[in-house]
Design a protein around this nucleic acid. Sequence first.
DNA 1: ATAAACCTGTAACAAATGTTACAAAAAAAC
DNA 2: GTTTTTTTGTAACATTTGTTACAGGTTTAT
Lengths: 210, 210
Amino acid sequence: MIEELKQHYGYLFEDELLQEINNVGTYRDIPEGLKLIEIGDYIKSMPLLISGAIKILREDKEGDELILYFIEQGDTCAMTLSCCLGDSKSEIRAIAETDARLIMVPVQKMEEWLGKYKSWRNFVLQSYQNRMTELLEAIDTIAFLKMDERLFKYLKDKAMVNHNDVIHVTHQEIASDLHTSRVVISRLLKALEINGRIELHRNNIKVLDL
Amino acid sequence: MIEELKQHYGYLFEDELLQEINNVGTYRDIPEGLKLIEIGDYIKSMPLLISGAIKILREDKEGDELILYFIEQGDTCAMTLSCCLGDSKSEIRAIAETDARLIMVPVQKMEEWLGKYKSWRNFVLQSYQNRMTELLEAIDTIAFLKMDERLFKYLKDKAMVNHNDVIHVTHQEIASDLHTSRVVISRLLKALEINGRIELHRNNIKVLDL
DNA sequence: ATAAACCTGTAACAAATGTTACAAAAAAAC
DNA sequence: GTTTTTTTGTAACATTTGTTACAGGTTTAT
């Protein structure tokens, strides 16, 4: 167990902290599609991602979704940080984009380590910073790009985190993630195919122009 | 000086920390419209807002703007935190929305206090959390609302931070903040006036439906 | 006082996105 | 093997947003 931890977080944390994490953390294997966090949940432990990817979603009043970003190996969910430390409800939904492996650290330890380890403090602050950057990028995408560019960026990002240029997804699922309608997505996908940037198949899309 | 500081931050920080802030911080009076932070700036000190409001903006590739949110009294700019602690460039522009008064704290002290004062740690983390919440709200506004609703929300927010239901602004300025065109704003403003929610005058708008 | 710059209103049109409806192919269920 | 469900394609149309053009009123500069 400690091997794995050292491999992914050894460059960040001193041995003593790694040992503490290993002692109090619990390892979890997560299957693709599992909902890790629901909007409104109180979070009692913080996930450190070892492998795989997590999709972070926001929801509107009608219950329709919007993807914010993906989290990958070496990250944690800074939203979780907020919730734990602020003792407030989750503002977002987190779903395993791929099979994933993570360590859950109880919230009490998180706070304790903030005073004790400088490397932990830096990690937490760096995580906030990363998440802030991701949110700003999400805003850029939503506010400044037209739907066809947003769509292609989404496909590329998805290919990236899945380490595969063939994406297993339906038009309806894409439409939900991008907060638009299936018809719009089908139309724009067809245009992308005509322009030679993707190949369309039933239940999967191959991204050519990576 | 210390009076003012105690009044606005006394409930957050212990006396010893207040004293330190007073010793190393410098007070600044800022006139409305002054640019405090430009995109790409390296930040060497962190502003604690005592009075007034700051407008935070994002910019696209063409140099056009988009408002993210306003910061008010008791807040700090968490983007600044990111930049200071991460030693990176500013991702946003900050402009004084009203006359404002603030204390600038040098970045070295910020880090030092993180290890030394729990109340400072909590303040920094709370600031990150607040900013995260504001960014999420900005995303909701941009992604889920139509332009007429965004416009009205903007007018209300602006009336709020100015403590005045009469807003001094031109249609072009609104269009820039909302990343759209002047004609669109004029059109929607006229519709809002017809619906009795605002009154239009040259260079100012009265918000009726607060 | 006159010219220039700025601010608002509005028409006419273009482009992007959203909606409804229907058809056909593929996969899943029975 | 037949039925049902899921997935994709596409047409036709509505709504929202963006663009261009111009007119007239107001303020500012000289």
